[in-house]
């Protein structure tokens, strides 16, 4: 009789596991979601810093032009009115906040310790039930003759395993649904942010281009006037300006590439959510998210180095 009950529960356990569609290795999936979240956090913070500094950069450039050119007409609105409205900047700020919240909730759900807490609670419930059964056995002649605890022990172990699988499957389904629901809007946001970042790159790089062009004219003037020391000093400045431009472009273009990788990683999450969740699907997801994470770290560190050098 006991063997038949155990056999039935084993069958039910296997059937439940098969029906759940849980990722084969939920821990690896959880880690990938966590990496995606921290990479997005880093990308968003760097991008927001750049977007927020568009106004101050433009104002600073106008001041530089006024200082360098005594004949430049003073257009006070260029100093007093920011080119970007506070509402438009606030919209980007909120967007980054929403993106962060979304990836944080993805990570929170993926990392939820619900199945572990279930196991702990279930273990305590089993101990309490066992104590109750022991007391019942001691006080009741009829119950004392039944092998209740012999049956409940293995059944509870099996039901724990099922509960864990159900919790993981439920969690996996919720993650899949949320990722699929947010996907079109995330794509839309990412496209708009790419335009903003392209604006930032061109805004900064155009000033560097003008600076280098100006220096080449000063160089030609020094050549024409046979002023060798001025020529050499200008040559050094040209060399420094070219190097600074390369560094700045590399960080800013790295940021755009990280945004591209964010898209690829999010697409991979959507694809994984819709897949059969086989080992190859998971391996593909892990590879893509790791590459995004490495790129985000690199850009974050490069941005920090650049900021430290400027301050």
């Amino acid at each position: 009789m006991k063997r038949a009950i155990t056999g039935l529960w084993t069958f039910l356990l296997l059937a439940a596991v098969a029906a759940c569609g849980t990722p084969r290795d939920f821990t690896i999936y959880q880690e990938s979601i966590g990496e995606f979240q921290s990479a997005t956090d880093q990308t968003a913070s760097v991008a927001l810093e750049y977007v927020e500094s568009i106004n101050s950069f433009e104002r600073g450039y106008e001041l530089t032009l006024l200082r360098e050119d005594p004949d430049r007409p003073l257009n006070i609105s260029k100093l007093s009115e920011p080119i970007l409205s506070p509402q438009a900047i606030a919209a980007r700020d909120r967007t980054f906040g929403v993106l962060k919240q979304y990836t944080q909730m993805l990570a929170a759900l993926a990392e939820s310790d619900a199945s572990e807490r279930w196991k702990a609670a279930s273990e305590r419930a089993r101990s309490s039930a066992d104590a109750l059964l022991t007391d019942l056995n001691a006080e009741s002649g009829i119950l004392g003759e039944l092998p209740i605890s012999d049956i409940t022990g293995p059944l509870k172990i099996i039901s724990d395993a099922i509960a864990t699988e159900i919790i993981n499957a439920k969690r996996s389904r919720a993650l899949d649904a949320a990722i699929a629901k947010a996907a079109p809007a995330i794509q839309d946001i990412s496209g708009k942010l790419r335009e903003d970042l392209t604006f930032v790159i061109r805004q900064r790089d155009s000033v560097k281009q003008l600076e280098i062009a100006e220096l080449t004219i000063r160089y030609a003037e020094a050549q024409e006037s046979n002023n060798n020391s001025a020529r050499l000093s200008t040559l050094t400045k040209i060399d420094q300006a070219l190097e600074a431009r390369t560094k700045s472009l590399s960080t800013l273009q790295g940021l755009i590439q990280t945004l591209d990788q964010f898209d690829i990683a999010h697409d991979a999450l959507v694809r994984y959510a819709k897949s059969e969740k086989g080992p190859q699907d998971l391996s593909d997801l892990v590879t893509i998210v790791r590459s995004y994470s490495d790129s985000a770290k690199e850009v974050f560190e490069s941005f920090q180095r650049l900021s430290a050098a400027l301050s």
Partner: peptide, 27 residues
Amino acid sequence: RFNSEAAAFTAAQTKVLEATTDLRKAT
């Protein structure tokens, strides 16, 4: 362009917020 896109950003945010609410409920 930057200034005129605030509304489009808000619309996209609403969709992402809905997904975030679903995730919160699932948790």
